[in-house]
Design a protein around this nucleic acid. Sequence first.
DNA 1: TCGCAACTGTCATTTTTCTGACAATTATTT
DNA 2: AAATAATTGTCAGAAAAATGACAGTTGCGA
Lengths: 227, 227
Amino acid sequence: MERKSKIWYLENFNFFAELTMEQRTFIRQNTVMRTVEKNDPVYFQEDFAHSIYFLKEGCIKISKFSEKGQEFLVTLLNPGEIFGEASVLGNNKRQEAAIAEESAIFCVMKEEKMRELLLMVPILNLKFSQLLEKRLEKTQKRLEDLSFKSNHQRILDFIRELVKLSSTSDDGEIVIPNRLTHEKIAQLTSTNRQEVSSVFNYLKRNRVIDYNRKSIRVLKIRDLERA
Amino acid sequence: MERKSKIWYLENFNFFAELTMEQRTFIRQNTVMRTVEKNDPVYFQEDFAHSIYFLKEGCIKISKFSEKGQEFLVTLLNPGEIFGEASVLGNNKRQEAAIAEESAIFCVMKEEKMRELLLMVPILNLKFSQLLEKRLEKTQKRLEDLSFKSNHQRILDFIRELVKLSSTSDDGEIVIPNRLTHEKIAQLTSTNRQEVSSVFNYLKRNRVIDYNRKSIRVLKIRDLERA
DNA sequence: TCGCAACTGTCATTTTTCTGACAATTATTT
DNA sequence: AAATAATTGTCAGAAAAATGACAGTTGCGA
């Protein structure tokens, strides 16, 4: 993983775009940078919630565990994303766990400092609300899909989404690197690994995609879109 | 339905508590009151989104419709609740429909006025974020439950929640009036009316509850809690 | 009060989803 | 390079959920 300074990361964090020098200084003075190795926890469920986090590099997994110990994978976060924001809004216990899916670099800010900043910069507060609204919509969509679509369909949708997010050109062959395991895809779609496997092979048989453990190659994007 | 003045409603709206006179005046000057009859729409999916709404009396249903016309019941809103807030955050098309489940009274504010207000009163903006966070948590919970719990269990949970929300005393007999139909409960728990019916009868057979079409009577609250 | 529409109870059937098993393949560690 | 661990492919059986049918009940408006 590339190593850069805290300043560099903060300057390039989209959430903090368009702030004054003074505001940037406030942020610099009130954040610390931290790194975690793969599988290290950032926080656990039920922990006291003191801080908000800005992910710079790597991948953080947000999960909730039921009483029976079953894991619900909420999301996998990528650089530029924010987590632990509930603390800023008066939630003093973590409702979920944050664990490094891959080794990661992030900045940490105390919740009261973040609140101070939001009250100081109203436009940032609005941006913060926007962020929450986006998450709400995404969660809402997932809930609807779970209600109305079959396992098979949700897995197909997931693959489509993967392709949409990682392809630049519109046609020709698209290769998606760094594939998630079937197990992870199953968790993200609320299905099971066997069915994920079966959908992948269904697409392979129909020559819509080809894949190995490292990547997915989309052969016929049109066919995938209406599969 | 009791009829009161716009001022009366606004003064008693929790979201607007603790504002200055000046701010209250701003709100008064930038809201209009509206009433709708049962089954009237406030807005439809895909409509342009101009306004935010503050529900005063009655009940508003928030639903999303799939391409196939299937309805997903997001929530039933009660007095004191806010809806259509996505418009304030730059969403210019409604992602969902708002329809009067019962005849209702609400106040309407233009989205740009609401944004103006939020920028003017930072503490209100924070409250707004809090509201979104609460909804996110609720939706998240529903998603988890759908992933991990059986239909039977979710229906039981729903009944428990009903009881919890409408009972003041902790023991003795509790009566819950204005029962939802089995169909509505099925929609809210992502199950089907037959199974709702079956759970109700299961509880009735075990003398945990008794019910008719108007109310539910909880006979053994303890048994319900660990049913 | 009658009749209709909405709601409820129940069952049988079909469809979907879950689960365990096990072999085969690939990646990682020693 | 061998051993070990993780991942994938496939299947069969079990469990859960969805659906359609239909009779019975209740509430409401004409």
